[in-house]
Simulated assay, not measured.
Amino acid sequence: MAKKTSTPDTWEMKDRIYHLKSDSKPVVYVIPSRHTRRKPLLWFDDNEKIQKELRYATNQSSPFVEEQKGVATLGHIAFRNGTLVVPKRRQNLQKMLSLYHPMKDIIYVERDEVKEATNDLGYMEMEIEALLVAREMDIDQAEAILRVEIGSSVNNMTSNAIKRDLMLMAKKNPYMFLELAQDDSVELRNIGIKAVEANILKISPDNRTFQWASNGRKLFTVPLDEHPYSALAAWFKTDEGMEVLTSIQKRLK
């Protein structure tokens, strides 16, 4: 008589849910449910140092062929719309999918409720933090961040509309929002764009040179392969650039 394969001590009797890893969710997706020569379905037992054949049989308590008795009623393993729900009464199928099937974590994964709850909580906390930051943010920084999202359309928005869309942005993508909120280059880019729009600075047609609009004096040459306003934001942090930045900020008020 074959030695019965032991189940891990941590095994829990509960309903389990499995999901296909692929982004596509076919109406029906069937994975192998028994070992054949064409489609091997084996599990290596580290204790006994042997390969064991797997077979899902609805009338058997074990997923291993050698431990099954009598006539086996074969069952199919079918994901519907990318999901397979297995109730706790079907322990043989659960163990096959969770412990032994070679396609686990390759074609499908088991839903981890604890991990998902932890991830959900972390996301909710980040969302709350982003919304609080957005609520307290001054209008100039809010405009700078929103410009990243919607471009020059921000110029035609009222302060209330900017704050509203900023809150929506923070809620929709809190991680990106918090990154932008901590990036001082975003606000410096916005100042550069506003300076050009207000005809304080001029940018050459080839986007390579910034100059004073009033007298045409060259201020800064954009390095090759760099975005002009990103390069300008970096230049504003230099000693020479800081003097120009201060002058621009006074004129924009």
Rank of each mutant, 00 (worst) to 15 (best):
A2R: 08
S6P: 00
D9K: 10
E12D: 11
Y18V: 02
Y18A: 02
D23I: 06
S33Y: 07
T36M: 04
R38I: 05
E48P: 01
E48D: 14
K49T: 09
Q68M: 07
A72V: 05
T73V: 12
N81A: 06
G82D: 06
V86S: 06
K95G: 03
Y100E: 04
Y108Q: 03
R111D: 14
E113W: 11
K115R: 14
A117G: 05
A117H: 08
N119R: 13
N119G: 01
Y123P: 01
E125D: 14
E127M: 13
I128D: 14
A134D: 05
Q141G: 04
V148E: 15
E149H: 10
S152Y: 12
S159M: 09
N160G: 14
M167N: 11
M169I: 04
N173L: 04
F177I: 00
E179C: 12
K202S: 15
I203D: 03
S204F: 05
S204L: 05
R208T: 14
R217M: 12
F220V: 02
T221W: 06
S230W: 07
S230G: 08
L232M: 09
A233L: 01
T238S: 15
T238E: 11
E240T: 09
G241T: 03
G241I: 00
M242E: 15
I248S: 05
K250H: 13
